[in-house]
Design a protein around this nucleic acid. Structure first.
Lengths: 155, 155
DNA sequence: ATTTGAATGATAATCGTTATCTGTTAATAA
DNA sequence: TTATTAACAGATAACGATTATCATTCAAAT
């Protein structure tokens, strides 16, 4: 569990914006703060809701545009699961596996040692130049297995 | 490369429909024929276009509804890549990795020995009951690497 | 302080997919 | 074979997430 320090992460993001000649606006800062402090995988609506607490006039479009910028400079990972909007990870903006409980909705970032080498085998077998990948597992967590606990867990 | 015999595959699909008390309509048969004979990963629009050659009055909604039914009974795998509609695989309707060339758009089904055991490690580590998964690699194929060949390959 | 291109905010547009509803038909039994 | 009926097809409206548009505002460099 590599827990990033939110302040350091925020500074990192701001630096990257500057490097790429993007402007630092209060609205962008608000979005970045949420991304840096989120331990989970917030949705656009969740980010939007939080931003509006500090900046009530913020538009949903601004949140989307900020996320597009952050994706472009590689500081946010977009998670495109099937149902209902995408999720975003501002702390581990590189490809990594996810484990989604279809019961309560929680999303986990598992560490999988055995995943090492799969990409290498693929490159060796196909000659492709791999740029990115996506690995998602869908199942039922231990808690949802025992009880029929339908409590939606947000993360 | 396990190449399924299209006729056998079609019969299999029809049997599954019957087993699950779904009706065998000419429109459904047309969609199933396309799924069974496709070596690649056709889009809804592609299926729709082909169906209309034999059945000009077919509605796009009918194609979608047929695909929903086939997904429900586990005879079609839906591939949800980011851009532009989903793709469908009627020959390997179980989870398997995909390799997408972002240059020409081709989709390959690689065999990855090293993938064995990853799910097991995940189960052991988390206690989840895994129902399905998704593994997609995005990169550039050997052909697109050498030339700037921008020929869109459909499959 | 001025300037200017970029960002914001509000809203329309887009696109893949699903819902709705009316007329048609596959499948079962008489 | 025909009658019956629930399921299906077709046409189109609705939907939801995201993107585009455009006038106004503002960050940042001079």
């Amino acid at each position: 569990m590599t827990m990033t320090d939110p302040r350091k992460r925020l500074d990192q993001m701001i630096s990257k914006l500057r490097e790429n000649n993007y402007r630092i606006t209060p609205q962008r800062l608000a979005v970045l703060r949420i991304l840096a402090t989120s331990t989970g995988h917030p949705s656009v609506e969740k980010i939007y809701g939080k931003v509006k607490k500090d900046f009530p006039t913020t538009s949903l479009a601004t949140v989307y545009k900020t996320l597009i910028v952050m994706k472009e400079i590689g500081e946010v990972l977009e998670l495109g699961f099937g149902e209902g909007g995408n999720r975003y990870d501002g702390n581990k903006p590189y490809p990594h596996p996810h484990l989604i409980c279809t019961g309560c909705g929680q999303i986990i970032d598992p560490d999988l040692e055995s995943l090492q080498g799969v990409t290498e085998e693929l490159i060796k077998a196909t000659g492709f130049k791999i740029n990115t990948h996506r690995l998602d597992f869908f199942g039922v967590c231990p808690n949802c297995q025992k009880a029929g606990s339908k409590k939606p867990v947000e993360n």
